[in-house]
Structures are given as C-alpha cells and as structure tokens.
C-alpha cells in the first residue's frame, strides 16, 4: 500500500519535474493537478494536453478567473493573475505529449486497500477520531452512501463515487493536498491532512465506492419516515392526555356565539 502511494507520488513528480523553463508554471499547476492531467486522461476535469488548440488563450484566462461567466461551470474560480495563467499554459504546452501519445495513468490503479486503513479512514471521515492537525471532519460537509455511518452534511458534493469520479487515489490525493476548492482551502489550508490520514481516507473512499451498490439506502429512508410518523402520533396522543382538561377558548364564547346568531 505504502509503496503504491510512493509510486504514484513518484509518477506525479515525474510528470511535473522535467521542464525547468516553466518552473513557475509547474509549481502553480500543482493546484490544477488535483483535477487535471496533461496527457494523462480525464480526471475530475478534462485532460489539458493541447488545450490551446481547442480554446484561445483569452478565453482560458477569463474562464479560469471567473468560470461563472460561462455556461459550463465545473471549476471553482482561481485567484490567479493573467501572467500566472500564461505561465501555467506555457507549462502545459511544454508538457503536452506528442500527438496520440497518452500515458495510461489510470491503468496503474490496481489498488488493494487494507481493512485497517478503511476503518481508520471511516473514523476520520465521521469525526470519531480527529485529524492530527485539527482540520474539521469530512462528514461536516460531505455525505457518503455508507450504511454503517450516519447521514453526512449536504453542504458540499456527495463523495460516494469520488474515487472513480476523480480518477482514483491520485485524484483524491490531489484534492486533499492541492485543495483546489476555496472552501477546502479555508478549512484545511492551515490544518493540513497528514500523509497517514490521507492514505486512510483514500482507502475508506475507495471502499465506499466499491461497496456503493450493496447499500440499502431505500430502507433507511422509509425507516426515518416511519419513525417520524410514529413519533408525531405519539406526541399528539401525549398532548391529548396531558392537556385533556385544559380550558378551551373563552368562558363566554357560547354567549357570544349565540348573540351573533340572533342578530
């Protein structure tokens, strides 16, 4: 497991290290790498290899700075200057592999996770154990479809299939270390997740993704509905008996009602 992680890390290092002329762009790209590859295939976002052939530079700059202006809103806005974006684009150009040459990154992901890690990951996700550096537990904002655990927060994306959606271990690592989303940045920027914790979370999220088809969430939903209905009726009955002899309305209501009728 550990070696696998190191291997993926090395792969990332290999991907980012060669072009020294775009050093600036390389370091800046690290936050993009959470979702994008250059010739590595689609992760969360599209493969950026040859992106300049598909879109103009101006368009890319505007999109990166303010994705909300475009119909396709997939990406959180990035606080980058025009020069910085250009540096990243230079780096992308320099890294773009020759035509037809796509590295098979996904293929490497023949990952087997240790059950211990899954358990620790679950506890971290749920907040039963706290993150070493004091970051908030994932469940505060995220939900996963996992029976053993309570319903999570709905503030951010559902992470049930984040493993496959974001391109496996690499994607998760990229998001958790690169922190491309502003909310994640402010939550974990000063409280980074340690390497061990990362491994455990990765293991847990993979486990969740692998087992999502076995979850009986339908039953859970109706169970809550039934509990709610039974509770509501119980409270109504309780109110009926507790306040059975309460004074209802005014003592002169019958007099007033009769007077109104006789008018």
């Amino acid at each position: 497991m550990r070696t696998k992680t190191i291997l993926t890390l090395l792969l990332f290092g290999f991907l980012f290290h060669t072009n020294s002329s775009a050093q600036d762009g390389e370091s800046l790209f690290s936050s993009c790498a959470a979702c994008h590859t250059i010739g590595g295939g689609k992760l969360v976002g599209p493969d950026l290899a040859g992106v300049l052939e598909r879109r103009s530079e101006d368009e890319i700059i505007r999109y990166v700075q303010n994705p909300a202006d475009f119909d396709v809103i997939m990406m959180p806005p990035q606080n980058l200057t025009n020069a910085e974006i250009k540096a990243i684009l230079n780096y992308i150009v320099s890294k773009s592999p020759a035509e037809g040459q796509v590295e098979e990154v996904v293929e490497v992901e023949e990952v087997v996770v240790a059950l211990d890690d899954v358990k620790s990951g679950e506890m971290l996700f749920e907040g039963t154990t706290r993150f070493e550096n004091g970051g908030p537990s994932c469940i505060a904002c995220h939900n996963v479809d996992y029976e053993q655990m309570m319903q999570g927060g709905l503030l951010a994306a559902d992470l049930t299939d984040v493993y496959s959606r974001s391109g496996g271990m690499v994607g998760i690592k990229g998001i958790l270390t690169g922190l491309p989303f502003p909310a994640m940045k402010s939550a974990y920027g000063n409280y980074p997740i340690t390497e061990d914790e990362l491994v455990q979370l990765q293991a847990f999220l993979k486990h969740v993704d692998d087992n999502k088809i076995y979850q009986h969430h339908g039953e859970k939903k109706t169970m809550f509905l039934h509990f709610g209905m039974i509770g509501f009726i119980t409270i109504l009955i309780l109110i009926f008996f507790l306040w059975f002899d309460k004074k209802k309305g005014g003592v002169k209501d019958d007099i007033y009602n009769r007077q109104i009728k006789s008018i």
Binding site: L242, W243, K246, K247, K248, G250, V251, D253
Partner: peptide, 15 residues
C-alpha cells in the same frame, strides 16, 4: 413545566 409555554388556565381578555 407543563404550562411553561402556554398556560391554558389563564383568563383571556374575553373572560
């Protein structure tokens, strides 16, 4: 405690 939020035995203005 039972009547802390609503005291039903209290006379209302119409009483």
């Amino acid at each position: 405690l039972k009547n802390i939020f609503h005291n039903p035995n209290m006379p209302i203005i119409d009483d």
